[in-house]
Amino acid sequence: MAMVMRSAFLPQLPPWGRKAMFALVLAAICFAFAFPVLWLILTSLRPESGVYYVHRGTEFTFGNFAEVLREDRIVEAFLNSALIATLATVFSLLVTVSSGYMLSRFTGPASRLWFGTIYVFRCVPYISWVLPLYFVNQSWGIYDTYVGLLLPHVAVHICFFSWLMKGFFDGIDPSMEYAAMIDGCTRWGAFIRVAVPSALPAISALAVLCWLFTWNEFLFALILTGNRVPMITVVMAQFVTEMGLRWNLMAATAVMALAPAFLIALFGQKYVIRGLRI
């Protein structure tokens, strides 16, 4: 562990030495975390002939991106993933904000039972219910449709997000809601007009997370969709096994799939951090 080693020999170094060590360690860490992504971006910019010698050569091109975007299936998959992620975010928030509010504001058997249910279903491995969901979806006629993919995505977020929302509401003083109710607000009014607006920062954090989770999800899309609703993660996984030799195109597709993550890391950082701090 870095901390132990540092404390063992760093005190003997002069202050500038410590600073240099610290900077060096930090640089190494950043490199380790950034390298795979940088390497992927570099690969995506190399022409087909240069892709096997990414470390050499100086030709760069955006041709790979253009070629990938000419593939209808990939474009369709990107659009599908964006659409499902957006819809799943809206619906997940609609159902989990109220469920988290209930967990936070009410105690008693109903609340305890709901919390227990959520915890248990949070533990159930995805495969244990997505595998039979394949049949449920087929018998309901929603296999390989938007609805058939969207609703399980909303369902999977219920447990974790209710839990997170409970934590957020726990941090908000309920006295404003009581005051509103004394002034003649109904319970619904207190919830929608007072509690929800004050939880808005948390809700936006959750929205960012939810969008990313859905965009990145793979197993659901693999099992619940066929050819009619291609999703980008599934298309890429097929790509890597079927067209395993065309790494320049593979890399270009992957870089485009990473774009939302980059944008969020740059501009939505505070939301992600807020959302992840349980």
Partner: peptide, 8 residues
């Protein structure tokens, strides 16, 4: 960044 990269 790794946190937001799709596992795939």
């Amino acid at each position: 960044v790794p946190l937001m990269v799709a596992p795939v």
